[in-house]
Simulated scan of single mutants.
Amino acid sequence: MAQQHLEPTDPLAQPVTGESLADHLRSQATEFLRALRQHRETGVGGGAPARARPGVGDSGPQESVGAARSLRRSARRISASLHTYRPLLDADWSEGMRPELAWLSGTLAAEHACAARLERLLTALHRLSGSATLPAQTAGTPGGAPPLPERGNLTVGAAKAGALLDRQLTLARTRAHSTALQALGSSRFHAVADKVAVLASEVPLTPAARDADLRTHATAAEERLYDAIAGLPLVTAGSPYNAEALIHGLSPDPAPHPQDGPWHQVRLLLRLHRYALEVLHGRGRDAPADVRLLTAGQALNRHRDASEAAAAAAHAARTPRIAPATAYALGVLHADQRHEVEAARFSFQQSWQKQTVSTS
Rank of each mutant, 00 (worst) to 15 (best):
P8E: 11
L12C: 04
Q14G: 02
P15A: 01
V16L: 10
T17S: 09
L21I: 09
A29L: 08
F32N: 01
F32H: 03
R34S: 07
A35V: 11
L36C: 03
R37K: 06
R40G: 11
P49A: 11
P54W: 03
S59I: 00
S59Y: 01
G60K: 02
S64D: 06
S70P: 06
R72N: 05
R72D: 10
R73A: 14
R73T: 02
A75H: 10
I78Y: 02
S81L: 05
R86A: 15
L89P: 10
E95N: 15
G96E: 13
R98F: 13
A102I: 14
W103L: 12
S105E: 15
G106C: 04
T107I: 06
A110F: 01
A113V: 02
A116P: 00
E119K: 00
L122A: 03
L122I: 15
L122V: 14
T123S: 13
A124R: 07
A124C: 10
H126N: 15
S129E: 15
A136L: 11
A145G: 07
L148R: 14
E150G: 08
G152I: 04
V156Q: 14
A158P: 13
A158K: 07
A161G: 09
L165M: 05
D166P: 00
Q168E: 01
T170S: 01
L171Y: 02
A172W: 04
R173K: 06
R173I: 04
H177D: 15
H177Q: 15
L184I: 12
G185M: 10
D194I: 00
D194R: 15
V196N: 04
A197C: 07
A208N: 07
A209E: 01
A212E: 10
D213K: 01
L214E: 07
A218P: 08
A221W: 07
E222R: 15
E223R: 12
E223L: 14
G231C: 05
L232F: 10
T236M: 06
A237T: 03
Y241Q: 14
L246V: 13
I247K: 12
G249V: 01
D253F: 01
H264R: 11
V266N: 05
L270R: 08
R271V: 04
L277D: 06
E278P: 00
D286G: 15
D286M: 12
V291N: 11
L300G: 02
L300Q: 02
R302Y: 01
R304T: 02
D305G: 00
A306Q: 07
S307K: 02
E308V: 03
A309F: 05
H315C: 00
R318A: 03
P320R: 04
P320L: 09
I322S: 07
Y328A: 14
V332S: 09
L333R: 05
H339I: 04
H339N: 10
H339G: 00
H339S: 04
A344K: 09
S347C: 14
Q350M: 06
Q350E: 10
Q355Y: 11
T356C: 06
